[in-house]
Design a protein around this nucleic acid. Structure first.
Lengths: 400, 400
DNA sequence: CGCTTTTGTGCTGCCGTAGAACATAAACGA
DNA sequence: TCGTTTATGTTCTACGGCAGCACAAAAGCG
């Protein structure tokens, strides 16, 4: 989504808004580590100015003064600051095998969550979203008193039109043109309309940020979300690249072999046909309901079919990811979903393929890493994105 | 290049710098169309404030007051503003068949240029850069009096380390680890150290912007630069995506068919082997020195070999670009270099392939377009990038 | 010729940050 | 024990920048 807004002139209030945002971000990046003086040092302002900004944010509940530990240094002890504990974001996710709701606060702590596993392939959207709405209502009721939910997000495994609030198409759910906000109406407060997002984009975001404004282990990486299909996202400088309509990251349908098997998407030889969960398990001769854990066990035990399936997937991933890295120059790959569990097995071959096929590998060797093992990463990402509203415009959340 | 700079607090002077930049950009985007009052309207400030900002920029030579045409409307006639005519950027390019130098001013006008065609494959870097230096000295000497060259850029067909000023490798020139600044020393003034950039990135930039700050025909597009190999770049919101090391856009080495022919890069079935200039001409049976014009003539005349070669290239481009569009969600492709000339022939098949292989094609059909026919587009892009310094920090160029 | 309309230019007031002086709260050392 | 040192937090004044308003200037219109 390229922002085509007309730039507006900066005024005094813009200055203040900018600095409030910088202070908030600085504290979020290092919770509990910065005092008013520390903020002043981080921003290069005087202590007087920093103190005034901090005071406003504390008064509005966006920052908290926390208890200080034993004084270590000499002078007057500092008052440590942390992100406020009242603002919270509601993250939701519907996937082929899972419905999840999770609430995060500004410090990235999980205030409440509900996960529900169920096979939703070929399901009725109304029923699934009604289930989700029930979980969400439960979770909202269980929040600590004083919590202020600033926004909501919903992660969906398909093409989303965020502007109009439509899920255009989710192949694995077999849903088309669904409007979740309508089907959720009643379960959520009227002012809490969930922003839709792609599951892989949001899961990638939960890797890029440990908590709102706090950078995760990687800043630049290509994320692969192995659910039933293969979703993906590219993250550069901590920002998920969404493309011009928000449909970026469809790595699962990059062509690995034009002479390969047909894909329901209309193309041939898509990566998903080689490394998707179902394709992978089928190739290994593992029953579909056994899961990647069983595949891993067999491969580590030396089962030839399992090893061949893993090698085939590594090859296909190598071809597709080499293309992505050649185009994007982001030589770090993070594997999520079912692929995360197989990282150890996939890595050697995959890194070898990448080293051979990536033009710049000689100067910077591509690296493959496993993502975290959080169950519904999309829900976490959706909650993080809801909390963006606070970091991007703190003034909106301060009392007039 | 992800910018990891620590954000610094905003002060009053930041406000002014921001607004000076906005005024300058507004005028650059609509040269000759805005007056002081128009600027005020565009930025949403008062006329008083806008006038003060404009006065400073005019005094510093970054804006000019131009003659007004016949008064059409009622009230007091406005004083039209245009980007200053004194600041200029020096753009240079070395390619396998060409050395070019071009100077652009803030309005995007060519103040002077020198092009020199010569086969530089397998050439000596020192000799080629000495040639370039000679042309650059000529051009700088031919500039109108009062011109102020604010920066220089050099477009190179290979992997560049812009930070250290090194060309790491240019396959078609067969150059490795070349430091152009050293080899150019003496030809340019000591304070004019050229910033290195990839040829395709800079050529793409010349498509994205007609003049500094003036958006071109497309804001979001994938650019393909057909020289001897195939370079590429992705542009989103008018900004060229450079990746984490500046090596993004190597579309020529995306794998089209893993079982395809070996490529000197170490991979197999690279796009370049199908749609690169040499591969294309060879497949069509056209002599290498005849060029794509001859190929086009033959294909339009119905020559079967020529048509087959074009169709093969369209197929390969379709496979590679579908992957790129799936990953980036930028469904506009602009063809440059030798491919630009063949756009009419390639488009039908290519768009067909893209429609079939791009997942979101149903909601937004990918489109193929021809880039402009400017000879050394990389040099233009390099000059535009040199002029960025002015748009990004106008204060630096104003008298204290 | 006077009225209307739009542009450009002064002036004052408000706001936010810089800078410096001062108050505060701890550890350190004799 | 008590002054010294050191760092934090607060308060006050000064300065720079924009908003808002009034006014001058330069055209067209009736």
């Amino acid at each position: 989504m390229s922002d085509g807004r007309t730039p507006s002139g900066a005024r005094q209030s813009t200055l203040r808004a900018t600095n409030l945002g910088l202070v908030l971000r600085a504290v979020c990046a290092d919770p509990g580590e910065l005092s008013r003086a520390g903020v002043a040092a981080a921003l290069g302002t005087t202590r007087g100015t920093a103190a005034r900004l901090v005071d406003d944010l504390v008064a509005g509940g966006l920052l908290d003064e926390v208890e200080r530990g034993p004084a270590a240094r000499r002078g007057r002890p500092a008052t440590p600051l942390a992100p406020g504990s009242r603002p919270a974001g509601l993250g939701m996710q519907v996937d082929a095998g899972l419905v999840a709701v999770r609430v995060l606060d500004l410090r990235g702590r999980v205030l409440a969550e509900r996960l529900h596993e169920e096979d939703l392939r070929d399901s009725d959207p109304a029923a699934a979203l009604s289930l989700l709405g029930g979980l969400a209502a439960d979770v909202l009721g269980a929040l600590p008193a004083g919590t202020r939910v600033v926004g909501a997000g919903l992660a969906l495994p398909g093409l989303v039109d965020a502007g109009r609030g439509l899920l255009l198409r989710a192949p694995n759910l077999r849903w088309s043109r669904v409007c979740p906000a309508e089907l959720l109406a009643g379960a959520l407060p009227a002012d809490l309309v969930p922003a839709l997002g792609n599951e892989a984009d949001l899961a990638a975001r939960s890797v890029a940020e440990d908590a709102p404004g706090r950078p995760g282990p990687h800043r630049d990486f290509v994320y692969l979300s192995g659910q039933i299909g293969i979703g993906g996202a590219a993250v550069l400088g901590g920002r998920v690249m969404t493309g011009s309509s928000g449909w970026a990251g469809e790595i699962g349908h990059v062509c690995v072999d034009p002479a390969g098997p047909a894909c329901p998407c209309g193309s041939t030889g898509c990566l998903e046909r080689y490394a998707g969960r179902l394709a992978l398990l089928a190739a290994a001769g593992v029953p579909a309901d056994a899961g990647p854990g069983e595949l891993r066990t067999r491969a580590e035990a030396g089962d030839p079919a399992a090893r061949a399936a893993v090698d085939g997937a590594a090859w296909a991933l190598g071809v597709a990811l080499a293309g992505v890295v050649n185009v994007l120059d982001i030589p770090t790959v993070v594997l999520g979903g079912h692929l995360a569990e197989l990282t150890g097995l996939l890595r050697p071959r995959l890194e070898e393929h990448l080293a051979r096929r990536v033009l710049s590998a000689r100067w910077r060797r591509p690296v493959v890493d496993a993502g975290g093992a959080v169950p519904a990463a999309g829900a976490t990402g959706a909650a993080l994105r809801a909390l963006d509203a606070v970091l991007e415009d703190p003034v909106r959340w301060l009392p007039a």
